[in-house]
Design a protein around this nucleic acid. Sequence first.
RNA 1: GCCGAAGUGGCGGAAUCGGUAGACGCGAUGGUCUCAAAAACCAUUGGGAGGUUGCUCCCGUGUGGGUUCGAGUCCCACCUUCGGCACCA
Length: 935
Amino acid sequence: MNNSVSPGDLIPRRISDEEPEIMRIAYNPQEIEKKWQRIWNERGLYRSIIDESKQKFYYLTMLPYPSGDLHIGHWYAVTPSDAQARFYRMQGYNVLFPMGFDAFGLPAENAAIRRGIHPSIWTHKNIDNMRRQLRSMGAMFDWEREMVSCEPEYYKWNQWFFLKMYEKGLAYRKKAAVDFCPSCNTTLAREQVMGPERVCERCGTPVIKKELEQWFFRITDYADELLDFSGLEWPERVKTLQRNWIGRSEGAEVVFKSEQGDPLVVFTTRPDTLWGATFMVMAPEHPLVEKLTTAAQKEAVQRYVRNAQRMADIERESAEREKTGVFSGAYAINPVNHERIPIWVADYVLMTYGTGAIMAVPAHDERDFAFATQYDLPIRVVIAPTDWDGQPLSEAYSGEGVMINSGVLDGTPTPAGIKKVVAWLEENGLGKRAVNYRLHDWLISRQRYWGTPIPMIHCPHCGIVPVPEDQLPVELPTDVTFRATGENPLTYHEDFLHVKCPICGGDARRETDTMDTFMDSSWYHYRYLSPHYDKAPWDPEEGAYWLPVDQYTGGIEHATMHLLYTRFFTKALRDLGIVNFDEPMLRLFNQGTILGEPQDGDFVAVKGHWQEDAFMAETIDVLVRPENGRLQRETLPVCLVNEDTVRGEVWHRDEGGIKVRLLTGENERIVVVNAKHATIQVDGKTVRLMDINMHLEVEKMSKSKGNVVAPDILVAQYGADTVRAYLMFAFDWGSGGPWNSRGIEGTHRWLNRVWAIIMDDTPVVGGRADPALVRQLRRKTHQTIRKVTHDVEAFAFNTAIAALMELTNLMKKLQATPVRGTPAWTEAVERMILMMAPFTPHIAEEMWQQTGHAFSVHTQAWPAWDEEAVKEEIMTLVVQVNGKLRDKIKVPVGIDAEKAKALALQSEAVQRHISGKTIRKIIFAANKLVNIVAQ
RNA sequence: GCCGAAGUGGCGGAAUCGGUAGACGCGAUGGUCUCAAAAACCAUUGGGAGGUUGCUCCCGUGUGGGUUCGAGUCCCACCUUCGGCACCA
């Protein structure tokens, strides 16, 4: 009945005998995806077990926060990672690809306050839902290794690490002016304050400064080591962000003395400008301000300091702001020339950087120059700019030059000058070489409930006492009441608070601050190895095999937060003897972001009446709906607004009404329309307000903008494989871009086409297959293997899938020819399925089975290409005249220069373009082109 | 202001080393099938000009220069967009 030699005849494919011969099984993703997910699970296909005979590969992707619903962004982050992990598995690696939940954090607590749900219940409900959604991706997660950071079995080890670090002096408590988010009601680490507006990383509220006793991790001890990225394959961008964040600057600390002899230490990167220091400046918060200020200046200084305290940091730190300051009345002695220079107090000097005091060298520092000009202080040039005419400077010169007005060092050029001055300072005990960092220690205290309790006890007699290790974990009490203010309920939970001091046994009080949730994510990749292990943070046997992480993927937004913290954490663990490597993740890739799809709004005519500034709608008629997201402006009715009508594009829509934009005419404007009581019609049918399309720009997806793409709906419509393939195909993974709801159709069409080609069991048309076509198919198959292999290694999933589409297109062409009966066809089919397996695992598994192969396609070896098959025999030789394309000639591959040149000269097109000219030169690029240079 | 990344058709995006710009897909146009539509399939698709009509020419990768036989790719200057830092001494 079927003379095809294509594989797959072993399995009956007809649904029933009554079906006509030509009827074939249609691609039904819903059915096959459910089926294979079940079978994979039952067979434990994705369990990752230690296997010393295989090279391990730990593939990690950033774990999600369980916010409730999986976002298309999660799919975008995870499914290409999954494809690459699967690819490595097929290449013979023993791959670990775990998933878990970053389950502590504020949204859970806010839900508790707003809706009275306990954070634990809210979180676990969300995790259950997201776990289900994650499973629908068909990823190769090993769910047996799932970790959830809000479980005591996890956070116990946060506390354990904290105690270890406390013992080592890496965790400490100090009083400092720290950043506080009034909306989240908690302190934040410096890294969690974003941008020049200094807003909270989570909620966007501007932070304020508070003087508080807080717990810190001594990340600054590792500043230099964190600047060393050797051995890491990380994006330059991330390395640059971390370098800038750490902000190392080399220079010297110089000891000035007040006239009374109080040492006043300053940090400078330009000790060679010491002779140009014409005044000093202290930050208003500097501890010596009070002591040094003279009686006469006391009142003025106090006023200034109070004023500075009141002023928000944003105002203070604005570089554009005119500089202000006040003279302290005191003088200091410049140690190099014994000059008597005034000491000022000014807020352009920050207490948080360096020593909180500076020597001001106005000639060579922009800020000092501005200040000196403002207060008429002397400016002395001590570094001569090249070609300097000796005239006063019009602006500070911070470049290199030759030292002048600097005593014995006159004539020394810049880099050497710095060295000499530092040596001289050290010899004379007046200063020393010093390095300063922008990086601050990591503030980990949070005044919130839903986090890891810091395992410390405050005893009135013994001071701060660590909770003994055998009493861990300090569990979060569950019977807590939340106040609307967001106050930490631990602070008024009597049972939690009252504790006996482990040393003296007297009444003591528990620490109520919890840990920054970045603590959780600093080591979660270790816990995955053995999430329920109770003798140590993880099973050392697992650690010895799997660690460190070979490939990490995630967004760029954590460059100076999570990625910095986790590096620090691993280095600290190394120094505690817990790990024996320096870096947690060897290779890093940052994927981009999926943005919202742009769309014009409906074009509507609103009838109604005016009530002050708002238009009260009675009826809204949708006149034109955008096609493919766009309104054709040329064909639209005229926009207008008068007594009883508003006509234009729907610019915005919410529960209360719409905003209509008049987009034609000179006075483009937006009219607010109240649509609460309006009848809304589309094509004569009454619809709800929410059915109106509003205008959407390309921007980040968010619920409030109404441009969120829900993966569940797409999976129901197209299947997970289509969603996966589309996300990998339509974007450059490193960049992301706007969603396109039409584009996904193309990918779905591709899968349908592949299915139809591979599952085609109609009789092969008779006759002998054309050997040239057979060779062409075989060549394309092997070229595709080569391309896909290289592309997946390079994270170029889009071009890998494009290559598979090209192979599909060729197969489509040959499907109706006798080539379909050849071994080359069978080979193409098999390799195609194997190559699809990482991208679209379900359809690949189904086709693998349907073509008569044994379970599972995912345990097969990744196909290798045959160099011989890849080779072309005939190539297109490009012929240029003066660099311009003039002809293309088919020639055998490997043609030599002489033959190629001769052929090129024979070309009619070439003759036309060189006639009347003299040939100066003929360039031959092997297997590429001939370029005839003629004048 | 400083540092970094990026500018390619109507759109998403391709183009190892400097060597055919626009792969693949979306959209669009025309066609086949159909009573019709959808789906599917086939063809065309950077812009322009000319034509002896499957042919020829010109322009074209943000702008202006340069290097080179040849530049999306290298160099210089500039413009725009996005990100980071921002009185850091």
